[in-house]
Design a protein around this nucleic acid. Sequence first.
DNA 1: ATTGGCTGCCC
DNA 2: ATTCTGC
DNA 3: GCAGAATGGGCAGCCAAT
Length: 572
Amino acid sequence: MAGTAFEELCMLCETLAKTPSRNAKIELAARFLSKLNSPSEVSDAVRLIIGEASKDFTLNLGYSHLLKALTNITGVGEKGFLAEFGETGDLGETVRRLLEKGRRGVQQALVFRRPTIGEVAGVLREIAEISGKGAMAKKLRILESYLKRLTPLEAKYFTKNLVGEIRHGFGEGLMEEALASAFQASPEAVRNAHMVVGSLGRVGEILKEQGAGSLQSFTVKPLTPIRPMLAEPAQTLREALEEHHGRTLLEYKLDGARVQIHKHHSQIKIFSRRLTEVTKSLPEIVELAETFRGEDFVVDGEVVAVDQSGRVMPFQEVMKRYRRIIGVEEALSRIPTRIFLFDIVYLNGEPLLKKPLTERRQLLEKVAPYEFLTPQVEASNLEEAEAFFEEALKAGCEGVMAKRPSSPYSPGRRGKHWLKIKRQPEVLDLVIVAAQYGYGYRYRWLSDYYLAALNGGGGGGRPETLPDYIEALHGWRFRVVGKTFKGLTNAEIEALTERLKGLALETVGRTVIVRPEIVVEVGFSNIQPSPQYSCGYALRFARILRIRDDKKPEEADSLDRVKQLASKKLEG
DNA sequence: ATTGGCTGCCC
DNA sequence: ATTCTGC
DNA sequence: GCAGAATGGGCAGCCAAT
């Protein structure tokens, strides 16, 4: 049977974008999916509708390559591209409009047979598979030839899939519902299968091929990663205790990287939070896992970097190990790691997802020696909880996790079974020295702000980066220590945009450098050494807490204060 | 052989 | 990762 | 309360340019 046209999928996406009601979106998508011809077509369609394709295989092709290809096809340069982009804030829509204005090489899209869903997915797969010398040129050639033969509408959604931003308000969660509706399965069964197999496209394929009944057999099995269970943020320990009815299990929340360790017979694999394999980067963890008891198991934990004396090192240090595949041996001795396990979801033939946490913890204690487990206490009052929290901070943690003792392991879910309580953010008053126009629904607003501290001297020299240039324009009176788009409501962003436009000094691309007059109170979790900002410091997880109209820029915090806070952290 | 731009993935 | 917003 | 959107700093890897 002939495949369904990709254009039909594009039209569905256009309708989804215009439909606000979630239920209506689900019905539209379900109707579309149930019409499709084959399991592989369902798989491809699901991926292309929610943008899973670009995440499933790595394209190594993005914005700049797209710009290059577009320049070759339409003759429009970066300026023309930015001008068009500024009209909508959407890459896909920009491509559509530019192609409508005309392309070189008299490639009439209509001359070609319309590509099917399977063909478009195949091209993306093809692009992903190219590597080695000359790879970029080859990828670009394919991209260009494809952009030439697609209609503008098709090119829009091809582009959106390329860069992975679909932006029609229809993501994984709603696709799960749509698949359930299209194939008469329960949403829970679809969700469960998704969490275990990792890809919704694959779930759709199975549904089309084997029907809804087949989903029941899906559960954890060693060497196939499942999506890790997630935690919801909570403000206070009190809140966590209340949520868990006065009795909760507290664990260290370490600032490392999530790992899922699988053992099957003698084979060991380690997976990251997003299910990529990191086994080769962590040979010492593999060696360690070989000593654990249990023929087959799947355990969940956090890997952190430690120094020679075993003290937990900052997050940046693990990252030097985490996805490294070149020079692993050398890095191994330079940056030792340590594993902290906190859960087990499979042991010797038996999935443990439905067992209560307390029971899983007991099994985990039988599998791995105590020193490799995350410290855990049971707290039934605030004093106990606070004492443990303090202890966790002293040990170098970002805070604690609070887990409901009876909770099952719900892969990929973020719920109140697991709560994370982080230490209070640190605060600085900083000056907005520049702002950037946003993307998507924020494209008309200056929604992203460069934050700077007062300079006590230093700086100067030839500007090399945009932050340098901003600092130079202000006579190096301020030093940029971060950038944020978080914390303000849309109404506040809109109002701030108007104020900032009135303070504009110079525009560079989509960035507006402004007179340094607006002071904001900024919360953040950390100050880290920065290779990016020339002052050498950067804020982690910065967000605006409030606008300080009561403060003048010269009353903002200084770079010296930033330095002090950073070094205090190191001693602590 | 090194450097730099870019992407993808950690948080 | 964090934050806000519409359903 | 959930799902989705918008976007941060910094790391390694890959490839192209020098």
